[in-house]
């Protein structure tokens, strides 16, 4: 799927690589955001900072985000994990497979 800007800030598309972060969304999280992918301004920081920015940019995902894990580089990450701008990042809402 093509990259899409977050609903509240389409200007992020013009930010140069290194200053933006692509975040993949799934299931009810994608439904709440209205996008399967958010691109946000990002100069590096922690998972905790990423949670704050995502919640500010896209309030609709806030309640589910509070119960979600963040995966960085293909691993579940703790809140103090650093996130580089080129990282592979996904929000993982509570799972329901089986």
């Amino acid at each position: 799927m093509a990259e899409q800007a977050s609903p509240r800030d389409r200007s992020v598309d013009v930010l140069p690589p290194g200053h933006r972060l692509t975040v993949d969304l799934f299931a009810g999280m994608a439904e709440a955001a209205g996008n399967r992918r958010l691109v946000i301004p990002w100069d590096g920081g922690s998972v905790a900072q990423l949670r704050g920015i995502l919640g500010d940019l896209c309030p609709a995902i806030g309640p589910l985000l509070a119960r979600s894990a963040i995966a960085v580089g293909g691993r579940y990450a703790s809140d103090d994990t650093p996130v580089e701008s080129n990282a592979d990042v996904a929000v993982i809402p509570p799972v329901s497979g089986g």
Partner: peptide, 11 residues
Amino acid sequence: WSHPGDMRAVA
């Protein structure tokens, strides 16, 4: 969509 519980404990 079914999203039971809290995934932050998993991380």
